[in-house]
Each structure stands twice: as structure tokens, then as C-alpha cells.
């Protein structure tokens, strides 16, 4: 086998692009789940973000605006889930699945006129001497803004959850909403904000698919990415750093196995194809094996102030 045709620089560069949409969606969902809400509508919110971002970018010629509106649109859509589950106390699992169906249908309706069109894509950042460095420059420092924003987001989420009062309140709501309520925190309002944030992140992830990773609009184009994001949150045992590891591992092994195939590696293709799932699960289970890392105690449980 001759693997010399794999260029490690290009490989790392495409891994970063491949991991970003899942990372964005997963980090948002993690915040939602830490607040005690299980939103299974990630796929629906992602694809809504994908179509809205694409449509706005095509019509305005401004991909950055596309991302912003995609985040807003998916966040607003997620609020419908919020209203149903938090105010009207509907079942979270069923409502989340419904949100996925609504998102898929809505997106194919909105997207009809945009099939086969080309959109402006995000420019690669030029970070001066960093981008000009040999090897590392192309690998790590010449991506578009969203790649760095998604990584910054992971750090911000981690820091906020761990070190700030807001983070503590959010976790309290997710662990024991009755106690949080007794302390005077507005459980429903906090959860609505978390859902809104999760929706916005999923929207960004979707827009990244249609504006950078593919880049085009095709009906049903998320093809399960939202479900992967959901799984990664669980396997990462609700920790921001592990979510990032999981997303990069999944994106990384996906791209790596395609590259190995392209280079003609003598590994059974069936094994290579399954490897992203196997590796991600194995590694995350392994690093989560020590200590108690259960789900937030109130995850998926309905809350009403009268109870």
C-alpha cells in the first residue's frame, strides 16, 4: 500500500472543515441538555439553518449575513419547541421528533428555488504570519472564520458552565429544577434561553454545511448529521471539551477513512466505513469511563411551578 499520496496538510485542513458543523450543533445541544431539556429536533434545526443561510447568502451575496440569519431562524424555530414543551408541557421526545419533521419539510419547501445554485462562500482568513507559516499555516491558520468561532464557542461554553454564576444556575436547573425553583430561579425562562441558544448553534452548523462544507443547497442534505451531534453529546457525557473531541474525532475519522480509500490502503472497506462510529464511541466511552458522569438529573423531565 502506498499512502504517500495522502497530504497530511490537506488532510488536517479538511478534517477541521468536516468537524465544524457537527461541533456547532453538538455544543448547542449540550447546553440545552445541561439545562435539563432533551431536544431531539437538532436535525430539523440544522437543515433549517442550512436552507435559510444559503438563501440569504445567495440573495444578499453576503455569507456572514447568511450565517447570522440562519442562526436566528433556527433559534426561532426551536422556540416553537420551547413553547410546546416548557409552557404547554408537551412530551419532549415527541415534540423534538416533530421538530425534525417540520424542519425537513419546511426546508425543502423554502429550498426549492435554490437547487443547483451557487452561493458566495466564506473567505479564508488571512492571519498574517500565522497563515504564512509552513505546514501549520495551511493546516490550522487559513480556515474561514466559523472554524475558529466554533472552537472559541466550546471554550466559552466550558468556561461559562464551570466558572460563572449563570453557568451554575443553568446546571442547577438541569440537575434539580424543583430546588432551583425553590431558590427563586425562573426555570422555564432559563430553559427557553438555553433552547434558543441550542437552536442558534444548530442553525450555524447547518449553514456551515450548505455554505462551506458542500457548498450548495440540496434537499435533505444534513443526512443525519443532527443525530450524530445528539449521540456525541451523550457519549461525551455532557462535557464541552469532550464534545469537541467527539466532533473532531468523528469528522476526522470520516475524512481519514475516505483518504485511506482514495490512497488505496489495504484495509477492508467495510471496516473503514464503520470506523468513524466505532472510533468515536470507543474513545469517548474510554475517556468517560472514570468517575460519575451521568446525565443531568432533570433531563427530559417536565417542570411546572405548581408541582
Amino acid at each position: 500500500m502506498d499512502l504517500s499520496s495522502i497530504n497530511p496538510v490537506l488532510l488536517v485542513a479538511s478534517i477541521m472543515v468536516s468537524a465544524t458543523p457537527i461541533l456547532l450543533a453538538a455544543i448547542g445541544e449540550m447546553v440545552v441538555e445541561r439545562a435539563g431539556v432533551l431536544n431531539l429536533g437538532v436535525e430539523g434545526m440544522m437543515i433549517t439553518g442550512a436552507v435559510v443561510g444559503f438563501a440569504v447568502a445567495v440573495n444578499t451575496g453576503n455569507p456572514a449575513l447568511g450565517f447570522a440569519v440562519a442562526a436566528l431562524a433556527s433559534a426561532v424555530l426551536s422556540l416553537s419547541f420551547g413553547v410546546l414543551t416548557q409552557l404547554l408541557l408537551s412530551n419532549q421526545v415527541a415534540t423534538g421528533l416533530g421538530l425534525t419533521l417540520v424542519g425537513l419539510g419546511l426546508s425543502s419547501l423554502i429550498g426549492k428555488p435554490y437547487e443547483g445554485m451557487k452561493s458566495p462562500t466564506l473567505p479564508k482568513l488571512d492571519m498574517g504570519f500565522l497563515s504564512d507559516m509552513p505546514v501549520v499555516g495551511r493546516m490550522l491558520f487559513s480556515h474561514d472564520l466559523m472554524v475558529y468561532l466554533s472552537l472559541a464557542l466550546v471554550i466559552v461554553v466550558w468556561a461559562v458552565l464551570k466558572y460563572t454564576r449563570i453557568g451554575l444556575i443553568l446546571r442547577a436547573v438541569g440537575e434539580n429544577h424543583d430546588a432551583a425553583h425553590a431558590l427563586g430561579y425562573k426555570v422555564v425562562r432559563i430553559r427557553m434561553m438555553a433552547i434558543f441558544f441550542g437552536g442558534a448553534c444548530a442553525g450555524l452548523g447547518g449553514a456551515y454545511l450548505s455554505l462551506v462544507r458542500v457548498p450548495q443547497w440540496t434537499e435533505g442534505m444534513t443526512a443525519g448529521a443532527g443525530w450524530i451531534a445528539l449521540a456525541i453529546v451523550v457519549f461525551a457525557s455532557w462535557r464541552a471539551g469532550r464534545v469537541a473531541i467527539g466532533a473532531y474525532l468523528f469528522g476526522g475519522v470520516t475524512v481519514l477513512q475516505l483518504n485511506l480509500q482514495a490512497a488505496g490502503a489495504a484495509v477492508p472497506v467495510a471496516l473503514l466505513s464503520a470506523s468513524p462510529y466505532l472510533m468515536t464511541i470507543l474513545v469517548l466511552v474510554f475517556i468517560s469511563a472514570r468517575g460519575a458522569h451521568g446525565a443531568p438529573a432533570s433531563l427530559g423531565r417536565p417542570f411546572h411551578a405548581s408541582a
Partner: peptide
């Protein structure tokens, strides 16, 4: 030859194309 093991997954198809082009 890259086996994608899917009929339809735009992101994966794009990744596969990129892997081939990079190679």
C-alpha cells in the same frame, strides 16, 4: 475508488470528492 456506503449524503460525497482530489 472510494466507497461511500450511501446513495445520498451530500456532506460525505463532497468529502469523498475532496479526498480524491487531494490525492
Amino acid at each position: 475508488i472510494v466507497w461511500a456506503y450511501t446513495w445520498f449524503d451530500p456532506a460525505k460525497e463532497a468529502d469523498a470528492a475532496r479526498a480524491l482530489i487531494d490525492n
